[in-house]
Nucleic acid binder design. Structure first.
Length: 478
RNA sequence: CGAGGUGUAGCGCAGUUGGUAGCGCGCUUGGUUUGGGACCAAGAUGCCGCGGGUUCGAAUCCUGUCACCUCGACCA
């Protein structure tokens, strides 16, 4: 049996072709499909369920911190988009334009929102008049469109789903605190819900968001050593406020411009989950966002009592986890492979022999470790094992990041490392964009971030020899 | 946007010097099965990516176009 050709082709191994492995998982785990619209994906129910879980956790957290949800228009009039110079320059090359309504040509083109700063600002100008109106803490869940040239499901699609928070504050300090607070929300979410370790830091001016004064990022490392920007938080100062003429009367009775932030996390994070935890058997999902946390597989289910017992256990477990029973006619082996492909964190096997012994087998997805558990102890054992899977995933991801983090003290060393290794490359940096461009040209690396957790690796910039201002991480990014 | 590659059944693919399309899996029906992708039998499924052209005849040759993949460039 085992010697026969596999009935269903396995996915490409990571080692052989990481990019193909990735798309194999997207398709075979039923996360997403291609559509007839270039660069746009169909998020299938299983992928959608993951996104809904991400949504629910983040949304709850945002609301705890006082944010309110709104829905803005899908379209932005051209004149509105153009109000902030840097912003429009950054986005214009990749916006989609609506030029007609029915057969009639529009007097002004409408762009399909690539992000909604301008819409929020236009609205804020109307509703903010006094310091008593501040802060305004708005968030929107929606999809946006950016006409990307190269697309890959989840990682970069022309349309993607996200949340965008847009807040207005009385003072610079308050806005900067908000920027950092939301970055921390993302970082905690990645580590505690997704089991993805992230590096928090600031983007260089070159990599900063169009129109922002400061952009902060959480950078995650994928299994192949490439970096993925997993969430960003921006501080805008009062640039947009001035451009959109948003003013309020301050406590001192004088007019003032509010200080603004925006922050976002998108469906791209699903790509991060795939590439951080996945293996050659398929997807591996962190329990907190897994649509199915435990799959119950009755073995030899036609034998008397088996199916009934499995259904009874499933009902019971609904109180402690997201559980699904698969009582289809597929063979046990088929089901094992199927739910491994789908990344279900725990599998519960239950056959006639188990039932006789009042036990079942729990198998962890992350390491396939089997545990025999008494049916009376499931309610305590399952949460423990789900936690163990989470911890296992986090530790594995962390170990990969540590193993692929390198330090360079000279430019030659950096170039050498870039040639032979993949991952994060730490160096000191003088802060000049000229050096950043040189690293890109000669080492093929871009700056990922200047981490909040700094290390003193030396006194000079290894690229130009001038005094160093900061430690920076270089890498290749998705 | 540049270089290269691929489009044939739901999926993976074969299809010779042009002659009117096939295999495996999946799917449907019935039966036997079920502790690592089961077996037998009988079925259904094709605008050969799309548009032009050459030809008596095109999946096959020419041409245009669209999509996807890889590597660059670009990108919050």
């Amino acid at each position: 049996m085992a010697d026969n050709k596999k009935m269903v082709e396995a996915i490409t191994s990571m080692e052989e072709d990481f990019a193909k492995w990735y798309t194999d998982i997207v398709r075979k785990a039923d996360l997403a499909d291609y559509s007839s619209v270039r660069g746009c994906m169909i998020v299938r129910p299983y992928g959608c369920a993951i996104w809904e879980n991400i949504h629910d956790i983040l949304d709850k957290r945002f609301k705890e911190l006082g944010h309110e949800n709104v829905q803005m228009p899908l379209f932005i009039p051209e004149s509105l988009l153009q109000k902030e110079k840097d912003h429009v320059e950054g986005f214009a090359p990749e916006v989609a334009w609506v030029t007609h309504g029915g057969e009639e040509k529009l007097t002004e083109r409408l762009c399909v929102r690539p992000t909604s700063e301008t819409l929020f600002c236009e609205h804020y100008a109307k509703i903010i008049t006094s310091y008593r109106d501040l802060p305004k803490l708005y968030n929107q869940w929606c999809s946006v469109v950016r006409w990307e040239k190269t697309t890959r499901p989840f990682l970069r699609t022309c349309e993607f789903w996200w949340q965008e928070g847009h807040t207005m504050h009385e003072t610079k300090e308050e806005a900067m605190e908000e920027t950092e607070r939301m970055l921390n929300v993302y970082a905690d979410f990645c580590e505690q819900a997704l089991a993805i370790p992230v590096t928090k830091g600031r983007k260089t001016v070159k990599e900063q968001f169009a129109g922002a004064e400061a952009t902060y990022t959480i950078e995650a490392m994928m299994h192949d050593g490439k970096a993925l920007q997993s969430g960003t938080s921006h501080y805008f100062g009062d640039g947009f406020s001035r451009a959109f003429d948003i003013t309020f009367q301050g406590r001192d009775n004088k007019p003032a411009y509010p200080h603004q932030t925006s922050w976002g996390m998108s469906t791209r994070i699903i790509g991060a989950i795939i590439m951080t935890h996945g293996d050659d058997n398929g997807l591996v999902l962190p329990p907190a966002i897994a649509p199915i946390q435990v799959v119950v597989l009755p073995i030899a289910q036609h034998k008397p009592g088996v199916l009934e017992k499995a259904q009874e256990i499933t009902q019971r477990l609904k109180k402690v986890c997201r559980v699904k029973i698969d009582d289809s006619d597929n063979t046990a082996g088929w089901k094992f492979a199927e739910y491994e492909m789908k990344g279900v964190p725990l599998r519960l096997e239950m056959g006639p022999r188990d039932i006789e012994a009042n036990q079942c087998v729990l198998v962890r997805r992350d390491n396939r470790e089997k545990t025999f558990v008494s049916l009376d102890e499931l309610e305590t054992k399952i949460p423990e094992l789900l936690q163990a899977v989470h911890d296992g995933l986090y530790q594995k991801a962390l170990a990969n990041r540590e193993a692929r983090t390198w330090v360079a003290h000279t430019f030659d060393e950096l170039k050498e490392l870039a040639q032979t290794k993949s991952g994060f490359f730490k160096t000191m940096w003088c802060g000049d964009e000229a050096c950043e461009l040189k690293v890109k040209e000669e080492a093929g690396l871009t700056s990922r971030c200047m981490p909040f957790e700094q290390e003193q690796l030396g006194d000079v910039c290894p690229i130009c020899g001038k005094p160093a201002k900061t430690m920076i991480i270089w890498g290749k990014a998705y």
